Simulated assay, not measured.
Amino acid sequence: MWHVRLFPVPFRLLAEEARFSKHSIIEVDVEPHGKRDSRPESLRPDLDTLKIVGEVPAGGDWRQRYKYVEPLVAPSLCAIKRDQEANGTSLGVFRPRRSPSV
């Protein structure tokens, strides 16, 4: 599992049955953007293949959503930056050890 950026998704132009919510689980065929966007996580969706296959409940209980996020959590910002240098990625998430003082 990895972060992906699906672009373009002209949401307002999607058929009603293909419109998905923020917490929807979807399946869609994708292809790399190629020379225009060489980031490995940037993918062009084939919207004709889009299917909504599930929904992660929204609301205050993060436990159900976290099982989808947890595999994406890097051990540190340094690890994300190393991956960026090695692979050209631009997305990442990590859990800070402590909150910074404001």
Results as ranks from 00 to 15, higher is better:
7 F>D: 09
7 F>M: 01
9 V>W: 03
11 F>D: 09
11 F>T: 04
11 F>G: 09
12 R>K: 13
12 R>F: 10
13 L>Y: 12
14 L>W: 12
15 A>T: 03
15 A>K: 14
16 E>R: 06
17 E>I: 03
19 R>E: 01
19 R>N: 11
20 F>P: 13
20 F>L: 08
21 S>Y: 13
21 S>F: 15
21 S>C: 14
21 S>H: 13
21 S>T: 15
22 K>Q: 11
23 H>W: 11
23 H>V: 13
25 I>M: 11
25 I>P: 03
26 I>V: 13
27 E>S: 09
31 E>L: 00
31 E>Y: 01
33 H>F: 09
33 H>L: 14
33 H>T: 06
33 H>P: 04
33 H>G: 12
35 K>W: 00
35 K>I: 00
36 R>E: 02
36 R>Y: 00
37 D>F: 09
37 D>Y: 05
38 S>M: 04
40 P>E: 13
40 P>G: 14
41 E>L: 11
41 E>N: 11
41 E>G: 05
43 L>R: 14
44 R>D: 07
45 P>R: 09
46 D>R: 10
47 L>N: 02
48 D>V: 03
49 T>D: 10
50 L>R: 13
50 L>G: 09
51 K>A: 02
52 I>E: 01
52 I>D: 02
55 E>K: 02
56 V>F: 05
56 V>L: 06
56 V>T: 10
57 P>Q: 12
57 P>G: 11
59 G>P: 13
59 G>I: 06
60 G>Y: 13
61 D>Q: 02
63 R>S: 15
63 R>F: 08
64 Q>D: 11
64 Q>M: 07
66 Y>T: 05
66 Y>E: 12
67 K>W: 00
67 K>Y: 00
67 K>M: 02
67 K>C: 06
68 Y>L: 05
69 V>F: 08
69 V>T: 12
70 E>Q: 11
71 P>N: 08
75 P>C: 04
75 P>H: 04
76 S>V: 04
77 L>A: 11
77 L>D: 03
78 C>M: 15
80 I>P: 06
80 I>Q: 04
80 I>R: 02
80 I>E: 07
80 I>S: 02
81 K>G: 06
81 K>Q: 15
83 D>Y: 05
85 E>R: 10
86 A>P: 01
88 G>W: 14
88 G>S: 04
90 S>V: 13
91 L>V: 06
91 L>C: 06
92 G>V: 06
95 R>L: 09
95 R>K: 08
96 P>D: 05
96 P>M: 07
97 R>G: 12
97 R>C: 00
98 R>F: 09
98 R>C: 08
100 P>N: 00
101 S>N: 07
101 S>K: 05
102 V>M: 03
